[in-house]
Design a protein around this nucleic acid. Structure first.
Length: 401
DNA sequence: AAATCGGGGAG
DNA sequence: CTCCCAGATTT
């Protein structure tokens, strides 16, 4: 009896296994069809690109150094936002050697406002590595590029194909959208496995001739025709006849993406503390959000005027007035700062402090550095989160003279 | 696998 | 408001 039960069980297991194999086989064939469909886009896409490529600054300079800088700047950052930074950067650091020789503060200052500041630090690190290990020339293999700080799968692919004509794929958000629509692929693109799969599809079709142009044509299509949020301009698309989503009138169904976690809200109070022609700033801790950048002293919660006075008195300062400023909001990807602020003036006669050079400053969590307008303008990197109050302060300092 | 890391423009 | 951008790295 038990024996028979066992045999039945085994047969069922085999059936299930066989079913799985059949399903896997079907999936494999389906994916090969999708990959096969993709091959047909190469020629029309390159032709379309030749006639429709935007006139972008980094397309006028094909030196690996320039390509590299542009690709890092473009990570998660819109073309329009990058343009002024790119031009200014190449003026300030025309060569990789010039960049490697610059102090990090200068590098960060040029990045001020562009966001994701670890990119700037990694660029600087990489410049030094390349000076030391590669005689000042960026390595030309995909594997070596991938090892550089700040260069991941995408950037190694884009730099490799654009600057070194390597037939390697580069898959960014644009490409994910374009490819999932053409193939009507409903796998979740926020899964790394999905990105891997699509990368292999693209790898199979990147042409040996003009790999960089082909990769750019895919991204360009995503940026100008195959738009997100369900409004693609399919009537102008050079490959709509090859697009499964378009044929099925389902372009808005792709790409499939899992919803984003909710942003946490954080109330903070920013203090503009004036001492003659100087204002208090401090340096953020060297890890986490806005690491090592400069900021105006700010504290958790929505402080009342009296609390502000007391806090400063506890630090040995002598506030004379504290005027409430307008509220502001700054949205990061995962945090929302709800800011309130005060303009505080101190009694200069009661103040004395030794001041080291700003580049040497390394105070504790809440130690102040007194910066004049020139330093704030020319040297200290203050993130955009403080822009509203930064502007108020600069105006105040200016009108006081 | 999930969280972290900026900032801004478009709808 | 929401979405997402020529992503990389850490946890």
């Amino acid at each position: 009896m038990d024996q028979q039960k066992y045999l039945t069980n085994q047969r069922n297991k085999e059936k299930i296994l066989q079913g799985n194999n059949l399903e896997q086989e079907r999936n494999k064939n389906l994916q090969e069809n999708k990959a096969g469909r993709l091959k047909k886009i190469v020629v029309p896409l390159l032709q379309w690109y030749d006639n429709n490529a935007r006139d972008l600054p980094w397309r006028e300079n094909s030196e690996p150094y320039a390509v590299w800088i542009s690709e890092i700047m473009l990570q998660q950052t819109r073309v329009e936002a990058v343009k002024p930074y790119y031009d200014r950067w190449l003026k300030a650091f025309p060569t990789l050697s010039a960049l490697a020789a610059a102090p990090e503060e200068e590098v960060l200052k040029l990045w001020e406002g562009l966001g994701y500041y670890s990119r700037a630090r990694n660029i600087h690190k990489t410049a030094k590595i390349v000076e030391e290990n590669y005689e000042g020339m960026l390595p030309s293999s995909f594997e070596a590029l991938l090892k550089l700080p700040g260069v991941g799968e995408y950037s190694a692919g884009s730099i490799g194909s654009i600057a070194f004509q390597l037939p390697v794929p580069c898959v960014d958000g644009n490409v994910l959208r374009v490819i999932t629509r053409i193939t009507a692929e409903d796998a979740d693109i926020s899964e790394p496995s999905t990105k891997k799969l699509l990368t292999e599809w693209v790898r199979a079709i990147v042409p040996d001739a003009r790999p960089g142009d082909f990769n750019q044509s895919l991204m360009e299509l995503g940026a100008s025709i195959c738009l997100p949020n369900g409004l693609p301009k399919c009537e102008s698309c050079p490959v709509s006849s090859l697009c499964e989503a378009f044929q099925q009138n389902k372009t808005t169904d792709f790409p499939v993406k899992k919803p984003k976690p909710q942003r946490k809200k954080e109330k903070r109070t920013v203090l503009l503390i004036l001492l003659g022609d100087k204002a208090a700033v401090r340096k953020r801790k060297d890890s986490g959000l806005l690491a090592s950048l400069w900021e105006y002293p700010n504290y958790p919660g929505e402080l009342k005027e009296q609390e502000v006075i007391e806090k400063l008195q506890a630090k040995g300062l002598s506030p004379v007035t504290a005027i409430k400023l307008k509220k502001a909001k700054h949205i990061f990807t995962h945090i929302e700062w709800q800011l309130s602020g005060y303009l505080v003036t101190l009694d200069e006669s009661l103040f004395s402090e030794k001041q080291v050079d700003w580049a040497e400053f390394s105070g504790g969590e809440d130690d102040f550095f007194w910066a004049n307008s020139d330093l704030l303008h020319e040297h200290l990197t203050i993130p955009s989160a403080f822009k509203v109050y930064h502007q108020i302060l600069l105006n105040t300092l200016q009108s006081a003279h």
